[in-house]
Design a protein around this nucleic acid. Sequence first.
DNA 1: GCATAAACGAGACGGTACGTCCCGTCTTTGA
DNA 2: TCAAAGACGGGACGTACCGTCTCGTTTATGC
Lengths: 215, 215, 215, 215
Amino acid sequence: MSRVVAVTGTRAGRPRDPRAHAAILAAVRDLLTTVGYERLTIEAVAAQAHVGKQTVYRWWPAKSALVAEAALAGYLAMPRTDSDPTGDLVADVRAWIVDAYGRLADPATVALIRGLAAAAADRDSDADLLYAQITRPSRDQLVTRLAAGVTHGQVDPATDLGVVADTLAGAVLYRVLARRPPPTADDVENLVTLVTAGVGRRTPGGAAHAGDTGR
Amino acid sequence: MSRVVAVTGTRAGRPRDPRAHAAILAAVRDLLTTVGYERLTIEAVAAQAHVGKQTVYRWWPAKSALVAEAALAGYLAMPRTDSDPTGDLVADVRAWIVDAYGRLADPATVALIRGLAAAAADRDSDADLLYAQITRPSRDQLVTRLAAGVTHGQVDPATDLGVVADTLAGAVLYRVLARRPPPTADDVENLVTLVTAGVGRRTPGGAAHAGDTGR
Amino acid sequence: MSRVVAVTGTRAGRPRDPRAHAAILAAVRDLLTTVGYERLTIEAVAAQAHVGKQTVYRWWPAKSALVAEAALAGYLAMPRTDSDPTGDLVADVRAWIVDAYGRLADPATVALIRGLAAAAADRDSDADLLYAQITRPSRDQLVTRLAAGVTHGQVDPATDLGVVADTLAGAVLYRVLARRPPPTADDVENLVTLVTAGVGRRTPGGAAHAGDTGR
Amino acid sequence: MSRVVAVTGTRAGRPRDPRAHAAILAAVRDLLTTVGYERLTIEAVAAQAHVGKQTVYRWWPAKSALVAEAALAGYLAMPRTDSDPTGDLVADVRAWIVDAYGRLADPATVALIRGLAAAAADRDSDADLLYAQITRPSRDQLVTRLAAGVTHGQVDPATDLGVVADTLAGAVLYRVLARRPPPTADDVENLVTLVTAGVGRRTPGGAAHAGDTGR
DNA sequence: GCATAAACGAGACGGTACGTCCCGTCTTTGA
DNA sequence: TCAAAGACGGGACGTACCGTCTCGTTTATGC
């Protein structure tokens, strides 16, 4: 019957069980890989995690949020962190592209990305947050490499590196969603060429390059 | 998506009612716009179209097929057909990009694209078909313009135009799915620069970029 | 798409399946007997009847309604119809009481009566209807016998037979609900005496009998 | 219903809070009146009493026990204790009946009785205990009055007063559960007649009624 | 014409999952 | 040790849709 509220910040009541939390996210990842986003049900998640449905609903408002957190909680294969920029722009861009497509060899990663795409379609509020989270680490890595290119004089300083990174990330995502076959070595090389040429130093005052003069 | 009718003679029985067919597709488009793919139900489609559920199931096997046909049956805003290549590569690419983003001003178009993305995530079988249908008209138009660029000597003949078109389409699709704000004039210009520079004539025999020559 | 309404009274759509209807009521009776009203769940009813939950909810608004119909649909053991009034008031009343208590030997009957009591507690609207249905056949039979008693001059014509019948029915119901042990022969005899004496011919103008004079 | 406390010395630890105890019972009575037994939940009781659920479960094993104690802890309107037998059998019986029905004017009393009936239906173990507790004070009072009638020669000494009292109590309970409208003055009078006549002095050695005497 | 056949609106069917409520238990902080 | 708070695994609730299955009705072909 005491109505005194604790002064300290720790709330009364049983604290959240981290094991349940982790089991739920693991179940989401498994089910996403096996049955896909549309056929993933919260009922199945709870069952597989040996958890009451209410425990899921207590912490996540919707299936999309669940998938989002599962993806962001370290279950999404991340870019290799050990490949630092070499200073060779072409090699660096090629390495990034190869790495990005390479990670798509893991079915769980592909399933998570597709799930996130579907989740984003369901969550107006933070769709761009979700996409940012998916692509940011990769994107930042690419931006770093391009910035090194600027330093080495291989990349035009006027280039908006963000636009380049987003475009490349979009191209990769597109292949995943459209379920295109993995790119061939030629495809990769063409993409490398497009990007490296596209960001190369340009004559001041003109948006186009030497080809313009051939007109 | 609808059942193929035998070429040899018309079968007996009441023929398919085209009014019901159209009403269903219209209901799909409306519901996609208002509630989105995930919350679109066949029950609601049938109710809104004043049609029995069986009439829907008779002609479409799944929700994704319904959405696909709704998108392909003229409900998806198509690229303007009246803008022929001018021969000015920069202007042509810019026109294409502006046109592509411009069509996204229609909420119904955006809803259909998102719906198709979700449907494709659910249907391995025809994901690339769906994406091809969404992006092909646009994509072909861009390829045509780039090919004109080749003719005019503005585009390197070695360029794989398909890769360029896919990359640009992916970048646009990415912005739609991620619900990014509409691109600014600067964004567009940066994208134009990236692409036009990327496809420009290069020194033969090398993947090296324009910057190489300027050094 | 035709909007013409049929002239006939038969509604469109698939008609109600009487087999599902019967299976549900049978399941209710079984479960009522085995687990009792409180632990009877609609989920279990549907499962046992091999029926979808919605089919139950489509026709019955609540568990209480379900139990009510199960009881009234012939699943409640009824009074023997072959025992006509003999004209001997004491024998007739005794026969009625013995019969009433005898029917309580069937566990299903007892379970149904208890379930109806609980259901009536849940259904303000028609609790007295429910009780009337439970007790009416018995009650009417008793009223018939007492009426014969009036004809034979054994029962005071001023007696409100309904009050008598309700009182006796209430006494029986009370024993069921209170789970009293079955009445002994003496109990029955005492009850017979109470009633037969209570309805006996009285001197006109007075509510009480000879005992009054002792005052 | 609450746990028995050892007589030998007070145990260590915080003593039971009587305010919580009382608040719980009050909440039970309120909820029983407002929502009824079926929709009364322990969760709601705890919330309304500003008490933790565990505090309820610590002292009461089940909803029925809670309702039982609420009824017995002075929340059930009791018979008036100031009306002693006058020696006038008819007046005494009439007073008892009027008093019994009069107490049913209080909605909380009616709700408690209905709740107890439902609880008893759910708990084989103490159904008769519950009923005894509800009806005993009333019942005993009636037996006392009838016993006075025996003394005054108005009641046949062979009468089993318990059977009479139970029958009358059952009749009253029946009206409550069946939600019959309050009895009219005529109904009361008829019931008084039935009982007073039924228990009146009879000719020795026969179960026959007053009418037998040919009067 | 008149049978046959298919499509139609309607809606009941056996099911699955939804998101919520409550069960009875457990685990924390605080008195 | 009791109490308030509140998370936990679990079960049932009543609802929404799924995809299927009758119904009566409508609209065509073909005998």
